[in-house]
Design a protein around this nucleic acid. Structure first.
Lengths: 197, 197
DNA sequence: ACCTGAACACCGTTCAAGT
DNA sequence: ACCTGAACACCGTTCAAGT
């Protein structure tokens, strides 16, 4: 009932808080994200938040879990080409996600979220799923190589795209004249340089 | 005068605050770093901080600048071998710095610090110097290649080590059975895979 | 120039109480 | 089960005042 003012039971407060958190992340970052502001946006008292999340960290872990789910989806989208070319496009999707959802991406790989991951089964599972999409991409790109080489290539390609993501996201590459707008072409070029054809 | 209680003029409050901040960063991270706690450790009132730093962000930028200086030093330490091998050891030093000074490394490349970099000449200069050490390392490793290739290799190698730094730092590679302790050997191996001999 | 004390507007978190 | 109101212990930041 959207017309009704302040129903005593919100109905979907948990989701409303997560949505508000995601918006806050992408516009102003984690630092200024406060539970009290999220509660205000959702139209409830700040104490209501604690009925759905144990504390601020728990809410952030829930947001991060949704982030990993969305990342998995985007990485799973059918990429043009086969094998090595498809893997490159998967890498582009990774960097693109980071550039488009900076605050969320930083949160997903932040110390605060990572530290609490062992005790949060949902988060753990979501993160693992995203990793497995990458793993399958590498396997498809190099079906003939042995398992040890696959592992090496997973680490190498993850490092490359994760590094590019961080550098583009924080605009560090301005020092060589590159901005976020260049992320796709640069990612393709760097991954090509790995020479896994 | 170390025996004297609470001199009215601290004498080196600025440095004391920066030292305390660095310690706080490496033990508990930016999130829980408060100006009030730093002031307490330095033995002054919290308001005294504002005589040396405009606000919390300014203090963090100063810490980050010192971080870039230290990174430059560590990257400049003479590495064994020549050319490609020396560049690999420079990469190892980069990842090693990140692993040993997690909180500081994260801060240096955080959005909060990066955003204020344009207006902070000291920080800007320190960050640029660190980049130039990397640039020279790449140039020495590949003296024969043209400038465009050098630029490509700078981006690629920076991305690789920056990505490995982030992944090791946040223990993301546990999913493939790797921990921080493996950072040096893995970094060497991945950089070797680039094939710039 | 450098520091203190008091104040303001914010937080995260807890808890008894209401429906 | 879900939300409110009031409370507590913290913050960052400002500013008049002291030496």
């Amino acid at each position: 009932m959207p017309g009704r003012k302040r129903a005593y039971h919100h109905g979907h407060l948990r989701e409303a808080l997560l949505d508000a958190a995601e918006r806050a992340l992408d516009s102003r970052g984690v630092v200024t994200l406060t539970l009290r502001a999220l509660s205000r946006q959702a139209g409830v008292t700040h104490a209501a938040t604690y009925h759905h999340f144990a504390d601020r960290s728990a809410l952030l872990r829930a947001v991060a879990a949704r982030g990993f789910d969305r990342l998995s989806e985007e990485l799973s989208a059918p990429a043009p080409g086969k094998g090595a070319e498809a893997l490159r496009e998967l890498g582009v999707a990774y960097v693109s996600f980071a550039v488009r959802h900076g605050g969320l991406f930083r949160l997903m790989f932040s110390a605060e979220v990572t530290r609490g991951r062992a005790e949060d089964a949902t988060l753990q599972a979501s993160a693992l799923r995203a990793f497995e999409v990458l793993l399958r991409g590498v396997q498809r790109a190099s079906p003939e190589v042995d398992e040890a080489t696959v592992r090496q290539r997973v680490v190498a390609s993850w490092a490359v795209v994760h590094g590019l993501a961080g550098l583009f996201l924080e605009e560090q590459l301005q020092v060589v004249g590159l901005t976020r707008a260049d992320h796709a072409s640069v990612t393709r070029q760097v991954l090509k340089g790995l020479g896994w054809e």
